[in-house]
Amino acid sequence: MNKRHFFWIVPSLIFLLSFFCAEVYLRAQETQIISEKQSGRFLLESNPEFLIQHTPKGKRLIPNAEVVIKNHNLGHRDIPIRINELGLRGPKIPKEKKDEYRILMLGDSITWGDYLFENELFHASLSAIQHPQKKPIRVVNAGVGDIGMQEITDIYFEQYDATQPDLVIINLYLNDARPPWGFPQEISQRGWLRRNIRLAEFLYKRIRLYQWVKEEGAQRFAWTSLQSKLNWKHDADDFQKLVHAAQYDWGAGWNQNSIDTIRPLLQKIHAHTNQNNIPIAITILPVAYQVYAEHTHREPQILMQKLAQEESIPVLDFLPFMRQHQEKKLYYDQCHPNPKGNELMAQALNSFVEDILKK
C-alpha cells in the first residue's frame, strides 16, 4: 500500500466509524415513530407521516395507523399508538351506540397524550365511573397535538356524526387561542434518506429548526431562555416577566384577546350541542409554572371561568388540585403532565363528570 492510498483509506475508515457510532447513538437516544407493520425488518423506517397528516384544516391523525413512538422525548418510554377508523386515538368505535354513553374529549397534545399509555391519560378512567342509569361509558379521545381552538372546533364538527357524543368536554390549555406552532409541517415530506438514516434526519431538523426560530419563532420562545434566569417561583414580579416573555405561547392566556378569540368558536360548538340537547363542559389545563410558583397566579383561569359563566357552561379548573401536590414532580415539561399528574387530574375530572351526570 503506497502512502497516497494510506492517506485516503485511514480518514475514510475514521469517517465511516464515526458515522456508524453516531447512527447507533441516535437510534438509541432519539425519538422515532416506527410503524408496527415493520416488525422483523432490519432497517426500521422512522417517519412521523406514519401517524400524522397535514390537511387544509390542520393536523389530523391517520386512520387505522398503528405505530410505536420509540424513546419518546418526554418520558423516554416506548409508547404504542393505535388510531381507529375515524382518525382518533383508541379502539374502534361501533357505529351502533345501543345503551352506550359517549364522552367526547377535545383538546391538544395533553388530551391526545402520545407520550402516555392509553390507560394513563387523565380522561381514561372516566369509563369506570358509575352512570346513574348503569349505562356503559365510552371515552372518545379526539385530541391532536399542536392544535388550537380553531382546530378543536373543526374536529368537533368533523367527528360529531360518527362519534355521536352524549357529553362534550373541551380541554383548554393556555395557548389554545394561538395558532399551531407550525414547525413540524416545515420538516414534513421526508425522503428515503431522512426516513431511514437517523443522522440525516437529526442534522436536517437541527438546521431547519435554527432557521425557523431565527426567522419566525424567536419571540415565541423567548421565555425558554429566561426561565432559568428569573426567580419566578418565589418572586411575583419575576413570574409576570416570564408571562410577558411567553406572550406568544402559554403567556397568551393572561390576555383578554385570547378569550375574544376563543369565545365565538366556543359559542359555535355550544350552539350545536344545545341544538342537539347535549351537555358541554370545559376544563382548564394550567402551565407548570402556575403549579410550582409560591404565589397563586390564576389570571387565565379567572378569564376563562368568566367566559364559561357567561355561556352557562360548567368548568373545571385543574390548578387548585395540582397545587395541592406541588412538592411532587407532576410535569415532564411546562405543559405536559406526567403519569402522576394525569392521575391527580383524573381524580378531579371523575368527580366533575359524576356531578354532570347527576343533573
Rank of each mutant, 00 (worst) to 15 (best):
F6P: 00
P11G: 06
L13M: 13
F20S: 15
C21L: 15
A22G: 06
E23V: 11
A28R: 11
A28T: 08
Q29T: 14
G40Y: 04
R41I: 06
L43P: 00
E45T: 10
N47C: 04
T55K: 02
T55N: 11
T55C: 02
P56D: 09
G58E: 03
I62M: 05
N64L: 11
A65Q: 05
I69F: 09
N71W: 07
N71R: 14
H72K: 07
I83S: 10
G87P: 06
L88P: 05
R89C: 01
R89H: 00
G90R: 08
E96D: 13
Y101Q: 10
M105F: 01
S109C: 05
I110C: 02
L116N: 03
N119F: 04
S125Y: 01
L126P: 02
H131M: 04
K135W: 01
G143V: 05
I147M: 07
I147D: 10
Q150P: 00
E151A: 14
I152D: 03
T153A: 09
I155M: 09
Y156L: 10
F157D: 08
D161F: 07
A162S: 11
Q164K: 14
P165K: 05
N171S: 15
N175I: 05
W181E: 13
S188M: 08
L193T: 04
R195K: 15
I197E: 01
R198H: 09
L199I: 12
A200P: 07
E201I: 00
Y204K: 12
K205F: 10
R206C: 00
R206Q: 14
I207H: 07
R208N: 04
R208F: 04
L209N: 08
Y210M: 10
Q211L: 13
W212Q: 02
V213A: 03
K214W: 13
K214E: 12
A222S: 13
A222D: 11
A222P: 02
T224K: 14
T224E: 15
S225N: 12
S225D: 14
D235V: 09
D235P: 03
D235W: 09
D237R: 10
F239A: 09
K241I: 00
L242V: 04
H244W: 11
A246D: 11
D249W: 08
W250T: 08
G251H: 13
G251A: 06
G253M: 10
W254Y: 15
W254C: 08
N255L: 14
Q256W: 08
N257H: 13
T261L: 13
L266P: 00
K268M: 06
H270C: 03
H270N: 12
H270T: 08
N274C: 00
I278W: 02
P279H: 04
P279R: 01
I280E: 05
I284H: 02
I284F: 10
L285G: 01
P286N: 04
Y292W: 04
A293E: 06
E294I: 00
H295I: 01
T296H: 08
H297S: 02
I302H: 08
Q305I: 02
A308K: 07
Q309E: 15
E310A: 13
E311Q: 15
D317W: 03
D317F: 04
P320M: 11
F321G: 07
Q324K: 15
Q324S: 13
H325F: 14
Q326H: 12
Q326F: 07
E327T: 14
K329W: 08
K329G: 09
C335D: 13
C335H: 10
H336E: 10
N338W: 03
N338D: 12
N338V: 05
Q347M: 11
L349A: 00
S351E: 14
E354V: 06
L357P: 03
K359N: 15
